[in-house]
Design a protein around this nucleic acid. Sequence first.
RNA 1: GCGGGGGUGCCGGAGUCUGGUCAAACGGGCAGGACUUAAGAUCCUGUGGCUUAGUGCCUGCGAGGGUUCGAAUCCCUUCCCCCGCACCA
Length: 933
Amino acid sequence: MFNLNKNAQKWAKRWEQAKIFEPEIDPKKKKYFVNAPYPYVNGYAHIGHLYTNMRIEACARFKRLMNFNVLFPMGYHCTGSPIVSAAQRVAEKEPKQIAILESMGFDKKEIEKFKDPVYWTKVFPKAWTEDLKELGFSIDFRRSFITTNLNPYYDKFIRWQFRTLKEKGLVMQGSHPVVWDPVEKTPIGDHDRAEGEGETPKDFIWAKFQLDDSDLILMAGTTRPDALYGQTNLWIDPNGDYVVVKVKNEKWVVGKDVLEKIEDQYAKPKVLRSITPKELIGKWVKGPIVKHKLYILPASFIDSSVGSGIVYSALEDPVDLLELHQLQSDKETIQKWNLDEKVVKKLKPIFIIKVPGMGENLGEDIAKEYNITSYKDTAKLEKAKGELNKRVFRKGVMNATCGVCKGKAVPEAQEYLKGSLVKKKEAIMFYELSGRVVSRHLNECTVKMVRDQWFIDYKDSKWKAQAHKALKSMKLYPEVIRDQFTYVIDWLHAWACAREKGLGTQLPFDEDWVIESLSDSTIYMAYYTIAHLIKKFPIAQVTDALFDYVLLGKGKAPNNKIEAMRKEFDYWYPVDVRSSGKDLIQNHLTFFLFNHTAMFPLKHWPKAMSANGWVTVDGQKMSKSKGNMILLRDLVKKYGVDASRLTILSGGEGIDDANWDSSFAETVNGKLEGIYTTCTDHYNKGRTGKKQAIDTWMENQLNSVTNQAINEMEQMQFRSAIQLSFFTLQRKIQWYLRRTQPNKQIINKAIETQLLLLSPFTPAFCEEVWESIGKKGFISSMTLPKPKQTKDVIDTEFVIEQTLKDIHALLKLLKLKTPKHVTLFVAPDWKYPFLTKLKESMKTHKDIGTLMKKLIGKDNAKETSKLIQYYIRNPAKMPDVILTQKDELAILEEAKPFLEKTFGCSVSIENAKDSSDPKAQQAMPSKVAIKID
RNA sequence: GCGGGGGUGCCGGAGUCUGGUCAAACGGGCAGGACUUAAGAUCCUGUGGCUUAGUGCCUGCGAGGGUUCGAAUCCCUUCCCCCGCACCA
């Protein structure tokens, strides 16, 4: 057998020379445009990339087999900050970063060059192309490109896109909270954190409480604006440090540690003076929503450095309630702060929320449930409070005392109040981290409001409706991801689409900002259709008007070259299928959808999307630390091109994770060798006459397997397709060859079909065999003949396999190795119609009585009644296929030489009717009786 | 917490919509046999337990309960795992 790796190289070169993957417009052929997200090129391709891209590659090759004119392009994504920061780290000689580059095989001298971000964008796209070519990907590399202003053509395209979006009113400016590293002065995403992954800015409000006879406002933070209806008093930290600050035109009282936060999120505060708890406790304030005033009280659980440092009390909260109970009985404290005991004692919960299954007094109820007796029981109190909040949020309904919120569910009331309080300036929005976050630079992070940020307005409801519409008409592979998309479309809000740092295209209308990576990659598939042509233009001629005409058909064609691009776009668009990892459903793929509906007319909206799971390696999650991130180039060296391609796709399908199985990969080449031998040994050899049973069987099997495989590939279910074309079909062919000397035409058809079906997965191998058996032309350019729909399958395999198994079982029982003679009894002819009828009747009737009446005739009454009882009790024994006695006899007769060869003895076939042997009576349709001598 | 996907043998995974033919496809691994000087490859056979002239029984599809003559499959409850929840590739 030939060397598989050299072979792959040989064919990759030939394909390239023949340009068979560089499709041109062909009006006679239906087009098919497939693509996957271009990779971010901060490293070599690894096994995870292989999976996603192999699915598209297999799809592309499959569609060519189905006689489509297929476009499969691939670009390279350079937009964003990772390359820039990695280059920075190289410049700083950071050991980890150096080690990463070393592990990719770069030497010291070359690593030096990586301190320039541009160098990355030269090295890795080139390396990717090499890898993909080596793997035999059927990509049109003429259309490859890199993103960012390093590529002025793409840069112009993105500028055009953003101007267009802005004209449509879908780009706007605003502010939004980010997790912020105050030292590095940069937003900190999940990946840049040493601690606190998953923590986000959580929105609070700070409600304003006006101090009586004063211009001071006490700010109290809360996540529960609904509880303002139940406010009873204000808590402050009796040992805390408070300050009076001027913010905009108001004078606020807040804890002294929150000044920086106010500046980051709201406005620069000016400290006027400090203020002691003594000056506040025992005074009255007036808060939003309710009419009554609140008394300011000290509380043990308040810390002036947390939140705003002030909290309002709603006594449905167990913490507040127990604190109050404590205070009410604590004469000493009341005296110490010179409080009015009458006022304190009078305080009691105001019931505002009804939770099914709980009494009116929620705080008391939950405290009882958790067996809490003291305000000092803080651990239990925290739990109780958490549980209560959960119940309130899920099931709570605002009761009649709640004015406009009466009858509203709690979450709804919260949203409403947040909006209306801020609008009425009775509160401000404020954000706190949901947990501690430490950046990779080891700085404690805060929340910062980024101002003048540019957004793409995905919350626009008309736009959402369009996206839903697009989704509805799309095919999804697998279909189960639809709910996820629906959810994401609804959930998506405005997306901050520009950054202050990183590679990319500058926002054309605000050049201080660079468009970030998820936003410059939403409609670039359109750019593929013209990428190879546009770069022939002088850059100055690439204008908005050009894109308007080529991509939107606006205006008139200025010249033939531009007209040619318009034709190209018009022919190839829309995208027929875009596939990616499932992680991109919630951002990229949905953006892709949104932006297409905004930019293009209906006929150019994408047709289908596909998503796949992650790759595990031998059952292990892939990660750098485990050292199982296998690079493509290493993979190919170890297992070979065809084996790598086949293994990764047979590792999984659908949305589940795919497992790269090394032991399977190791066996693939052997299996291919087997197929090679079968093909070359049997192609164009065999008899001419036709055998009724086994030849028909083979033809039917071939058609049936081919049909099934095509169906699976249509659904992008490549593992199933491999299962069928690699294993099932091979097994069928083997069985056919074992059973009989093949019919020449049939075996040729089988071999050709198998090679064609395998060609999307192991193309180089298939090309070589294709050539070896004397076929002309590339198999990669062939069309798979449409298989016939199968009918009237005479299932010879079933009958013979069953018989073989039975004989084997018998031999084992008898501890016989070499029988002298085997007699096979075929069931008497009456059993065939009888069993067929019984099988049919059992579908509708289950009771023995009815069946007896229905089926027992004059003849064989005793036996039939026994059989009915037997099959009712053991429906599993009913055979799959019931042939006619005639067919069964023919099949066995035809297989006689085969059986004799298998068991090394003579075989005779008898009709049970003509035998007096007691064993003969056991014969049933599809299950011969066997006697061994 | 919210949304989505899952839990089946030594392993990867079919089967779930449309309940019965399911001790469970297909593959891997393992064991035995054939071939071979030998290894590899290939082919055959086996691979839950106990039995057994081709049969029968038990156990089994995360756990518990229900519907049904019958449940991996339908319903309810519950536990566990994975992914996403953004400003980022």
